[in-house]
Design a protein around this nucleic acid. Sequence first.
DNA 1: CTGAAAGCGCTAACAG
DNA 2: CTGTTAGCGCTTTCAG
Lengths: 337, 337
Amino acid sequence: MTTIKDIAKAAGVSVTTVSRALNGYSDVKELTRQKIAAVAKELNYSPNTLARSLVMNKSQTIGLLVSGFTKESVKDNFTVEVLAGVNECASEMNYDLVLFNTNSSMQREKTYTQLCKERRVDGVIIQGIRTDDPYLKEVVDSDIPCVLIDIPVASENVGYVTTDNELGADKAVQHLLELGHRNIGMINGHEYAFVSQKRLKGYKRALEKAGISFNPGYVADGSFKEDEANEATKDLLSRHPEITAIFCASDLMAIGSMKAAHALGRQVPSDLSIIGYDDILLASYVTPALTTVAQNKFQLGFEAAQMLLNLLSKGDQLKQVILQTELKKRGSTAPNK
Amino acid sequence: MTTIKDIAKAAGVSVTTVSRALNGYSDVKELTRQKIAAVAKELNYSPNTLARSLVMNKSQTIGLLVSGFTKESVKDNFTVEVLAGVNECASEMNYDLVLFNTNSSMQREKTYTQLCKERRVDGVIIQGIRTDDPYLKEVVDSDIPCVLIDIPVASENVGYVTTDNELGADKAVQHLLELGHRNIGMINGHEYAFVSQKRLKGYKRALEKAGISFNPGYVADGSFKEDEANEATKDLLSRHPEITAIFCASDLMAIGSMKAAHALGRQVPSDLSIIGYDDILLASYVTPALTTVAQNKFQLGFEAAQMLLNLLSKGDQLKQVILQTELKKRGSTAPNK
DNA sequence: CTGAAAGCGCTAACAG
DNA sequence: CTGTTAGCGCTTTCAG
């Protein structure tokens, strides 16, 4: 493997000159530069980024902590799309991504922080972590630049990007209200997700605006899982058969709810309207197609990467980005009869 | 950031001893070891893997070249599942993954090989690359240990893992034959995928076994895309209305075919049977649910990682793994009337 | 059992 | 414009 030393020798110059020439510094005679470039190509040279990173104390790498790559959770294309967005932005800025093994089946012995510090990533993007994850605080408290997705925490070198979850939920419920529904249930995620709290808030707000008092018994948790939402929906509907519409805090759960409705012999949307959240791929493929509150997952990732890179370059220090959502009316909601 | 030097000073020993103690060498007095461990923890030490990799000439990192992280291609959860498998295996073996930016919208100036060499990854896994990708040959020819997914190339330090595509296609067509279909069309991917070639072969083989002569006009290409398959299917069916069943070389294309059938007023499965390949998530969610040939994508990734790590450890030098597929009978196929 | 010293490949003052 | 020198943090002979 050729090194700049080899090039220096072959070109009859010093390593310094080689380094400078190869890195495009201005203070190298054009002729020398060409000579060096030629030799480098001839010798099939590749710079060793490890060495460079070591001395520059900068790895041009950003770490990715996601908990969405387990065998089970591929259903949700949320993670992938976010990743695609991150990748796109990182790509443009010449950063590489390292995926940390946060979800091994084995007991993890190293904390995220350790992983990041050892790998000397320049910064880290965190997604899909529960707010009660013990390591979350650790990373945030560390001095590693960090951008969180859907977790509103900001500080010296921590920012976040999320969507307007309260408004999104509000819009969803608003839609149901406009269709004439009055008894609207909600299947929420779990308390360890900020988005759940926000979406519940939006649900309440929309209800309140419509002059409908909030009934805690109308809300159940589905842990963001299809199966649990299925169960929760069955339970909810049997306790409250008067419910004519359900707002689910995720599409996957909405699909679970639809199955529950089906099992209970209630037709969607004629007997029961269901609205989801996220606009995952499946949403438009299930039957009936799911009405949902769409969030731009790709953009979420892209913006997160952009914020992180800005943080790193000490450019604009924007610590908060809130994206808007869009109501997608499809087949799973209909006027109340 | 603490270094072993700091620890050495604080513990009153040399850096050598610190290095050895921390790396669990046996030739360190137990007392010294404990002392060092204590100091290390006290000083909140994290080893610098960059430095270590540099001197050891080993980065404990494997590169991932996928072309499945563009904004458009998230539909296919194939890539993600493979990634999950790779991640799982790498995780167990304490390797980290670096995702190379192979799909930036900008013109890429660096070849895969360059990327790999610069980052000093120990090996690389390649997935979703077309066989006519100019860089593919380059990587394979380089001396970087490499495992390909679905591209049957093996050499000194190159291996591959794939599924038995010919048999899989054979099983699919067999299934249609058993349902009494005789005029069976095929929507294939494109010629730059080995799997397409294999699946076509399997299609022919099944037909031949049944004593049905191959009609080239019954085969069209859909480029593995939903839309193109849709068009191709419309075209195929209008040219050959006698076709009663179609074998699609991917589920995404099968979904496109289903839409085409719908547009043409042909009911699936009663008027037209459609069978896919892959068993992507969508397959079981569309209506009717798609009959398909399932491949274990997670395992594909897992085995690829395992093979690569074996290659790296100079353990068993298995260069070829072929996984089996499973026919999943669902709602999109029915007996020929 | 421990330490001194060399060196991985590169960059960055600093001095010409 | 170019070279000398030092050093990033770590591992590894080689001597004790």
